[in-house]
Amino acid sequence: MNKKLVLGIILTAASLFATPINNVYADSYKSVTIGADLTNQQKQNMLKYFNVDSNSASVVEVTSTEEKKYLGDTVSKGQLGNKSISCSYIEPTTTGGLVVNTHNVTWVNASMIKNALITAGIENANVKVSAPFTVSGTAAMTGILKGFENSKDGKKLDEKTKKTANEEVAVTGKLGEKIGQDKASGLINEVKSEVIKDKPKDEEGIKKIVNNVTDNYSYKLSKDDVNNIVGLMTNVNKLNLDYNKVKGQLEGVASTMKNTLQSDKTKSWFAGVCASIGDFFKGIANSLKS
């Protein structure tokens, strides 16, 4: 066979195999959101931290106005502040679930963010949240959702979904100040699972679920705490999420919180048993007095 012909066949075959590889631009699926109030140097440092640049990822800014739009009704002014600082990295994936890591943010944690992403209907993504210095991280959720929408493989989220996901972070964050972040995340996840599964017809049905779940623990929640959870779950219920689709994700979060919540559930049960025994002997004492 002619050497030139053989060489031509080899080159053609090579180009056919190489073409799919050249068409896969993994970095183009990434999105980074940067706090608008950072200095130019800080913005560049955050891009380096996420290991991207403007050529390998969609880079957008998040402003304090956007934060207030989604969090202003539920987050205190002290936590919200007047500047947008925290940044996020979002890479939608086809498998692997939600992988969330945080750095230099104190008011929100990975479990809170993962919970809210489930509410937003996001199934698979690698997410990182960070800041050049320690901040509350309130811009994180607003940024993540905006970044997801701007990523190549992302999708447009409706305003109700974004509002509810941000509200979930806010309510969980406030609850976390009282009982701890992980406990708050676990409690909200458990209540949300029941609400999505049962789809209560009215607010009373939601309140019943909230009370049934919270009564299992030794947490001392105020009336406002309960009302905040009920309000959040009312909005979650309106999203009409498919329990079969999110069940695995919810159970995944629950499994990581299992040990954290179990001890408090045991304390609550033990306290109830002790109260019952105390009432029993008190009744006997009263009978003997009579």
Results as ranks from 00 to 15, higher is better:
Gly96Tyr: 09
Val59Ile: 11
Gly78Asn: 04
Tyr89Thr: 00
Thr63Val: 09
Asn45Ile: 07
Lys77Val: 12
Asn45Met: 09
Gly78Glu: 03
Gly78Trp: 05
Thr63Ile: 03
Val52Gly: 01
Gly78Phe: 05
Asn55Glu: 13
Asn51Gln: 02
Tyr49Lys: 09
Lys68Asp: 00
Gln41Gly: 03
Gly72Met: 02
Asp73Gly: 08
Asn45Tyr: 05
Lys77Trp: 11
Asp73Tyr: 07
Tyr49Gln: 11
Asp73Lys: 15
Asp53Ser: 12
Asn55Ile: 06
Ser58Val: 10
Phe50Lys: 00
Lys48Thr: 14
Lys68Val: 12
Thr39Asp: 13
Thr65Tyr: 11
Val62Glu: 00
Val62Lys: 13
Ser76Lys: 15
Leu98Tyr: 02
Phe50Ser: 06
Leu47Trp: 08
Asp37Gln: 14
Val75Asp: 02
Tyr89Gly: 06
Met46Asp: 08
Phe50Glu: 13
Thr74Lys: 08
Ser54Tyr: 14
Lys69Met: 12
Thr93Asn: 14
Asn40Ser: 14
Cys87Met: 01
Val60Glu: 15
Thr94Tyr: 06
Gly78Val: 11
Val75Arg: 03
Leu80Lys: 07
Ile90Thr: 03
Leu80Gly: 04
Asp37Asn: 15
Thr95Glu: 08
Ile85Tyr: 14
Ile90Gly: 10
Thr39Asn: 07
Asn40Pro: 08
Tyr89Met: 03
Lys69Trp: 08
Glu67Leu: 08
Val60Asn: 15
Lys48Met: 10
Asp37Ile: 12
Val52Pro: 12
Gly81Met: 13
Val75Leu: 09
Ile34Trp: 05
Gly96Met: 02
Thr65Val: 10
